[in-house]
């Protein structure tokens, strides 16, 4: 049926390199996720409680991140900033673009989470003698975290998938490494098939880990 000979040997030979690159993919995705959570939390709080220029800054961040393609954001941090003489390394390009994107999406999730917590929670915590900081970190944020836990899991998956765009700016994570080997051996289909499997396994592992963690965290 096929007039094509599959050659899997080169793929097998470079599999350790691909797995190393997969670790790099995970590293960038998780790092971007952590930065995104911190910035996203700030953006959400700004949008909920502030007015004026700070509010507009946070709102435009969120809307820009959500309404333009991730690839555009990557190109913008990669090539657009070059116009100002700012040349980031491929690693930094991917990290900033991913963090920018994640922060925007997570900010909306956090905002929804904060809005879902009744205001009385905050007030009763304050009337029990807690300071605003204590009430936020001990009463409100844990409840918000429970609401946004699943959106955060989805965002991590999305982050891992999106880091594959790194190959377009010359970043040698899983996709970039695959492209490198594929163009060296011309076994494009075989390499990308192997990479697809690796991505699938990574995503499934993340989902399983998140489910186990959820079972432990939300026992009560």
């Amino acid at each position: 049926m096929f007039d094509y000979n599959f050659h899997w040997r080169p793929v097998l030979k470079t599999l350790p390199d691909l797995l190393d690159a997969a670790l790099l993919t995970l590293e960038v995705a998780i790092l971007a996720m952590l930065i995104g959570i911190v910035i996203g939390l700030c953006l959400a709080l700004i949008r909920l409680h502030m007015k004026g220029s700070l509010y507009w800054f946070a709102t435009s961040w969120v809307e820009l991140a959500r309404n333009t393609p991730a690839l555009f954001q990557l190109f913008f941090f990669g090539f657009g900033l070059g116009a100002f003489g700012l040349h980031l390394s491929p690693y930094l390009i991917v990290l900033t673009a991913l963090s920018f994107n994640c922060a925007g999406y997570l900010a909306e999730n956090f905002r929804g989470g904060f809005l879902a917590i009744p205001e009385t929670q905050m007030r009763s915590a304050r009337s029990l003698g807690m300071t605003a900081w204590q009430a936020y970190t001990r009463i409100v944020i844990p409840q918000v975290f429970r609401i946004v836990y699943h959106p955060i899991t989805n965002q991590i998956v999305w982050c891992v998938l999106m880091s594959s765009l790194g190959m377009l700016v010359g970043f040698r994570e899983l996709s970039g490494e695959t492209q490198f080997f594929a163009s060296r051996t011309f076994r494009i289909f075989e390499y990308f098939a192997a990479t697809a499997v690796i991505y699938y396994v990574i995503v499934k592992l993340i989902l399983v880990a998140s489910r186990i963690l959820a079972a432990r965290l939300f026992r009560y």
Partner: peptide, 23 residues
């Protein structure tokens, strides 16, 4: 689920190179 767990860019490259194999 596979199509939601593999990056779109990989799917595109894979299919683009797989279609000629299928004729």
């Amino acid at each position: 689920d596979v199509f939601r767990s593999v990056p779109l860019i990989i799917q595109l490259v894979l299919f683009y190179n797989f279609a000629p194999i299928m004729g």
